[in-house]
Amino acid sequence: MNILLWHVHGSWTTAFVQGPHSYLVPVTADRGPDGLGRARTFEWPESVREVAVGELRHTPVDLVVLQRPHEWELAERWLGRRPGRDVPAVYLEHNAPAGAVPDTRHPFADRPDLTLVHVTHFNRLFWDNGGTRTVVIEHGVVDPGHLYTGRLPRAAVVVNDPVRRGRFTGTDLLPGLAEAAPLDVFGMRTEGLAAHLGLPADRCRAQDLPQRDLHAAMAERRLYLHPVRWTSLGLSLLEAMHLGMPVVTLATTEAVEAVPAGAGVLSTRPEELARAARHYVNEPQAAAEDGARARQAALERYGLKRFLDDWERLFSEVRS
């Protein structure tokens, strides 16, 4: 089967393209947001093929996975076929709603011609989906292996654009947490974070790390800290658990479902997160034991086979 999808979310797509199909990703001359083509920082199989926009109209496509509202119009214009009518289509929603959250209506609410796929049960609950058929296919992660050493008594944090995103990502909580455990913040656009927070360099080190180096760097830190207030479910949290890291996490959005007892600490109280971070820094054996439980829980719930099997079932349904 030929599946058309845009390169929007590198980590999620890396898991999705491990399936048995051919995956067509549009590519434009400028490799802009609507035509990034293949990933350059993630390892994708050869079954992921770049297709120039001008060739799509003549390319067999069996199913379209939409991930942004404007992709509906792009797909219809570039394929010469209407998603949901001329070619089966699903809309994948990566994000939790923003704005007036209890009343946030999904852009594809009340659409009888497609299926709306949420990546967490929290997202499905909080979006107003109207009458559109909805399903939840929880994340899957390509297992990086049990790489945890925890040799550095520091906390790993993974967040993109923490200065601009501020309270969404819990950036304002980092000064208090840095008193309990020195932080190494990885991601994109992290420059100037310590100065922005007024923290000395040894308490908050920020680095824009390439994806290929991220897991090894995370696994050297004693714990993973997830201070995000409002998001879907950060794949970095699930990746940290796969690595065998104990996790210290704000008990918000889907995190309360993802982190079971014994795999780390969940709380809505920043002071409790600080206490947990301090405990793991000072007790490496406890950190390793909780990290091992975190890995087992992640493999069971967010393993790649379950993820791909769920998608295969949905493909069969929407194409029948």
Rank of each mutant, 00 (worst) to 15 (best):
Asn2Arg: 10
Ile3Trp: 03
His7Pro: 07
His9Met: 15
His9Asp: 12
Thr14Cys: 06
Gln18Ile: 04
Ser22Tyr: 02
Pro26Ala: 07
Val27Pro: 15
Thr28Gln: 12
Ala29Thr: 08
Asp30Asn: 11
Gly35Met: 05
Arg38Asn: 10
Ala39Tyr: 10
Trp44Glu: 12
Trp44Ser: 02
Arg49Lys: 07
Arg49Ile: 04
Arg57Trp: 04
Pro60Asn: 00
Gln67Glu: 05
Pro69Trp: 11
Ala75Ile: 01
Arg77Ile: 14
Arg77His: 11
Arg77Thr: 15
Trp78Leu: 14
Gly84Tyr: 05
Val101Glu: 13
Arg105His: 07
Leu116Ser: 04
Asn123Ala: 15
Leu125His: 10
Asp128Glu: 07
Gly130Pro: 12
Gly131Thr: 10
Thr132Asn: 06
Val136Leu: 09
Val136Ile: 05
Ile137Tyr: 03
Val141Ser: 12
His146Gln: 13
Leu147Thr: 00
Leu147Asp: 06
Gly150Ile: 09
Ala156Met: 11
Asn160Arg: 06
Val163Glu: 13
Arg164Glu: 14
Arg164Met: 13
Arg167Gly: 01
Phe168His: 12
Asp172Trp: 07
Pro175Ile: 07
Leu177Lys: 00
Ala181His: 09
Arg189Phe: 12
Arg189Gln: 13
Leu197Glu: 02
Leu199Met: 14
Cys204Pro: 07
Ala206Glu: 04
Leu209His: 01
Gln211Lys: 09
Gln211Tyr: 12
Asp213Thr: 03
Leu214Ile: 10
Ala217Asn: 05
Arg221Trp: 00
Val228Glu: 13
Trp230Thr: 05
Met245Arg: 00
Pro246His: 13
Val247Cys: 14
Val248Glu: 15
Leu250Thr: 01
Thr252Glu: 13
Glu254His: 09
Ala255Gln: 03
Ala255Pro: 00
Val259Ile: 10
Pro270Arg: 06
Leu273Ser: 00
Ala277His: 01
Arg278Asn: 08
His279Asp: 12
His279Trp: 14
Glu283Pro: 00
Pro284Arg: 08
Ala287Thr: 05
Ala288Ile: 04
Ala288Met: 11
Gly291Glu: 08
Ala292Phe: 03
Arg293His: 08
Gln296Leu: 04
Glu300Asn: 09
Glu300Cys: 01
Gly303Trp: 06
Leu308Ala: 05
Glu312Thr: 13
Glu312Met: 15
Leu314Arg: 01
Ser320Val: 07
